[in-house]
C-alpha cells in the first residue's frame, strides 16, 4: 500500500489556511492512485508528529505544500516527522530551488518515508503560475501587451523564498509567454507597492506565490498596490492603476493545477501514479524546460 501525505502550515487563527491542502488532497483522492491520502499540519491536526501513525500503508510519500526550501521544509518538517538520519544534502539542492527527495524511515512507525521537496520549487510550478494568470484574465493565450509580476515575501522571513520567486520568474520569462516578467516582494526591493513602475505593458497580471489566501494576499498586497484603500470594500479585476490594468489573482496555491505538482513530486520519489487520467508527467505548456 502507498500513501500520500500533503503537509501544510495551517493556522490557529485563519480557518481558510488549510483549504488548499484539503482541496488538492481531494483532487488526488479522486484519481485513486494512492491507497490513502492524508493532510497534516504544523498548526492544525493531525500534526506532523502524529500523521504517520494514522496510516496503514508502509510506503509513504510526503510532499510539503510550501513555497520554498528553507526553515520549514528543511528543518521543522523532517524533525517533526522523526525522519531517521535526515540531512538536507539528501535533497541535492545547493541553489535552494532544486530539491529532489530523500528516502528514510521515521522512528515511531514501521514505514518507509519518501520526503519530497516542496511544491513551490518544482519546475511544474511555473505552469501553475501561468495557468493562474490565464484563469484570472480569461485569456488562454496572453501575448503582446501582458506583463507578469510574481510576488513573494522578501528575504527577511525566509532566505530561500526569494529564490523560488526569482527562479519561476526566470523560467517564465525565457518561455516568452509574457512581454515582461518581474519578481516583486512585500518587504524588500523591488517592492510590489510600486508595481506599475516596473512594467510598460498596459496589462499586468499579479500572481502572489503563496500557498493560501490570508492576510498578506487578501489585505496587504491589494492595498499596497493601490487596488483599493480598504480591502473590505473589495476591488475590480482588473483595476486600473496609473493607467495600467492590474489583474490580481490571489494566492497561486489555490489553483487546482497545484495537485499535479504534488503528484509529480511523489512520482519522482517513486510513487506509482499510473492510472491518473489526463496526467502527463512534466509536460510544461510553453514554459522552457531546462
Amino acid at each position: 500500500m502507498q500513501a500520500l501525505v500533503i503537509v501544510g502550515h495551517g493556522s490557529h487563527l485563519n480557518p481558510g489556511s488549510s483549504t488548499p491542502t484539503f482541496s488538492h488532497a481531494d483532487t488526488i483522492r479522486e484519481t485513486g492512485v494512492f491507497d490513502e491520502v492524508r493532510e497534516a499540519f504544523w498548526k492544525e491536526e493531525p500534526s506532523f508528529r502524529e500523521v504517520l501513525r494514522t496510516l496503514e500503508s508502509d510506503e509513504v510519500y510526503v510532499v510539503p505544500l510550501f513555497i520554498s526550501e528553507g526553515y520549514f521544509t528543511e528543518r521543522v518538517i523532517p524533525r517533526e516527522l522523526r525522519l531517521e538520519g535526515w540531512d538536507v544534502s539528501a535533497w541535492d539542492s545547493e541553489d535552494g530551488v532544486s530539491a529532489t527527495y530523500a528516502t528514510s524511515r521515521a522512528t515511531d512507525v514501521e514505514k518507509t518515508v519518501h520526503y519530497c521537496g516542496p511544491a513551490g520549487t518544482h519546475d511544474s510550478m511555473s505552469d501553475v503560475i501561468v495557468r493562474r494568470a490565464e484563469s484570472i484574465t480569461g485569456e488562454s493565450d496572453m501575448g503582446a501587451g501582458f506583463g507578469l509580476a510574481i510576488v513573494g515575501h522578501g528575504t527577511e522571513r525566509n532566505e530561500n523564498s526569494a529564490k523560488a520567486i526569482q527562479y519561476h520568474a526566470d523560467r517564465i520569462r525565457e518561455s516568452g509567454r509574457f512581454d515582461e516578467v518581474k519578481a516583486l516582494f512585500m518587504d524588500e526591493e523591488p517592492e510590489v507597492d510600486d508595481v506599475t513602475e516596473f512594467f510598460e505593458s498596459p496589462d499586468v497580471v499579479v500572481v502572489p506565490l503563496f500557498v493560501a489566501d490570508g492576510f498578506h494576499t487578501q489585505e496587504d498586497i491589494p492595498e499596497d498596490m493601490g487596488l483599493t484603500d480598504d480591502y473590505r470594500t473589495g476591488y475590480e479585476i482588473p483595476t486600473e492603476v496609473d493607467g495600467q490594468r492590474i489583474w490580481y489573482s490571489g494566492a497561486v496555491g489555490t489553483e487546482s493545477l497545484m495537485a499535479d505538482v504534488l503528484l509529480e513530486r511523489a512520482a519522482e520519489a517513486g510513487a506509482d501514479v499510473r492510472g491518473v487520467d489526463d496526467w502527463t508527467q512534466s509536460e510544461p505548456e510553453g514554459v522552457a524546460d531546462d
Binding site: E45, P46, S47, E50, V51, R53, T54, D108
Partner: peptide, 21 residues
C-alpha cells in the same frame, strides 16, 4: 472519526497495547 479527532484512534490503540510513546 479521524477527521473529527485526528490521530485519537491510533494513539488510543497504542495505549491499549502498552505502547503509547
Amino acid at each position: 472519526v479521524d477527521f473529527v479527532y485526528p490521530a485519537t484512534v491510533a494513539n488510543w490503540h497504542r495505549e491499549r497495547e502498552g505502547e503509547l510513546d
